[in-house]
């Protein structure tokens, strides 16, 4: 079961989605997850699509994930984060990359590890977020021998850090489908 922590703030990825990893039945093949057209069947996402804030028309060619190419994602409002939650996957292997949280010139590197979208089991401490019993292979052919997955991982930030912008790495094999910041509690102030 997928549970997003209460109060988690979903980062709006809409302007940055640049890749179509999901494919709806009957649609012509696109780039897919790996650039060769291998795609996660959109119909298998179910309610996850809403949870991830995916666009209407997901699987019909609209970009649905961010292939990391160094994008800088500005938050609507800065917040103090106690953690980062990522849903996504690697293509062409597992991925382990640095996302950089920024605020007022201060930067905090956060390592994010995600298993490959065709991995049967997690390679790191990530867990399965969504699973399909088949893959749309090259040419949009249903392939029951492959079971694509989306993975989720949560990285605590201790101590919490202020964040106004998240900068992604340059590794287009890291696909981010959902991104949340987990707000920290009120900052304590020293009393005399």
């Amino acid at each position: 079961m997928t549970v997003t922590p209460v109060g988690a703030v979903r980062v709006d990825l809409t302007p940055h989605r640049n890749s179509a990893a999901f494919l709806a039945a009957g649609e012509p093949p696109d780039d897919g997850f790996d650039g060769f057209g291998r795609a996660f069947p959109a119909e298998q996402l179910g309610a996850h699509a809403l949870h991830l804030g995916l666009p209407n028309g997901c699987g019909h060619g609209a970009p649905d994930n961010v292939a990391c190419e160094g994008q800088a994602i500005d938050l609507d409002e800065p917040l103090r984060a106690a953690g980062l939650r990522v849903v996504g996957a690697g293509s062409g292997g597992t991925v382990s990359e640095i996302l950089t949280l920024e605020h007022d010139g201060a930067t905090t590197p956060v390592r994010v590890r995600l298993s490959d979208f065709l991995s049967r089991r997690p390679a790191f401490d990530d867990t399965c977020f969504a699973h399909s019993p088949f893959l749309y292979d090259v040419g949009a052919r249903p392939e029951p021998g492959a079971e694509p997955r989306l993975w989720q991982t949560e990285i605590p930030l201790d101590p919490p850090v202020r964040c106004a912008r998240v900068t992604l790495p340059v590794n287009p094999d890291m696909h981010i489908v959902g991104l949340w910041l987990l707000p920290a509690g009120p900052e304590r102030t020293e009393r005399p």
């Binding site: 490959d116 065709l118 991995s119 049967r120 021998g145 492959a146």
Partner: peptide, 9 residues
């Protein structure tokens, strides 16, 4: 037995 990660059989 094909213990390949993506093609397990």
């Amino acid at each position: 037995v094909d213990p390949g990660e993506a093609v397990f059989f």
